[in-house]
Amino acid sequence: MNKENILEAIIEGYRNSIHQRYQYQNIKDKYEIPESIDEKTVNILRNYWLNYIYPDCNKRRELNEAFTSLDDFIKHPKKLLRLLLDATKLIFNYGRHLPKILTSGLKAMKTFKAAERFENGLVDEAIKNKIEAPYDASKINALIRLLPRKEIEKFIDISQSLFEILHDRVQIEKIKEIIQYLILAMKKNEESYAFSQIRGLEIGLEMLTEGDKLFTQLTKEDQRKLVYLITEIEKDMLGFND
Results as ranks from 00 to 15, higher is better:
residue 1 M to H: 06
residue 5 N to W: 03
residue 6 I to V: 15
residue 9 A to C: 04
residue 21 R to F: 12
residue 28 K to Q: 14
residue 34 P to W: 02
residue 34 P to M: 08
residue 36 S to R: 01
residue 36 S to I: 02
residue 36 S to H: 01
residue 38 D to N: 15
residue 39 E to M: 08
residue 48 Y to K: 06
residue 49 W to V: 05
residue 50 L to H: 04
residue 51 N to H: 06
residue 59 K to Q: 13
residue 69 S to A: 15
residue 69 S to W: 02
residue 71 D to R: 14
residue 81 L to F: 00
residue 81 L to H: 00
residue 83 L to I: 02
residue 87 A to R: 04
residue 93 N to H: 11
residue 97 H to R: 15
residue 99 P to L: 00
residue 99 P to G: 03
residue 114 A to Y: 07
residue 116 E to K: 14
residue 118 F to A: 12
residue 125 E to I: 03
residue 125 E to Y: 01
residue 129 N to V: 05
residue 134 P to W: 01
residue 134 P to M: 01
residue 147 L to G: 01
residue 155 F to N: 15
residue 156 I to Y: 07
residue 157 D to E: 15
residue 158 I to Y: 00
residue 170 V to K: 14
residue 171 Q to P: 05
residue 177 E to Y: 08
residue 182 L to D: 00
residue 185 A to S: 09
residue 193 Y to P: 04
residue 197 Q to A: 10
residue 198 I to W: 01
residue 199 R to F: 08
residue 199 R to Y: 08
residue 200 G to L: 00
residue 202 E to I: 10
residue 202 E to C: 09
residue 205 L to N: 10
residue 215 F to W: 06
residue 218 L to F: 07
residue 220 K to L: 13
residue 222 D to F: 06
residue 225 K to Y: 06
residue 227 V to P: 00
residue 229 L to F: 08
residue 231 T to W: 09
residue 231 T to F: 10
residue 238 L to C: 12
residue 238 L to S: 08
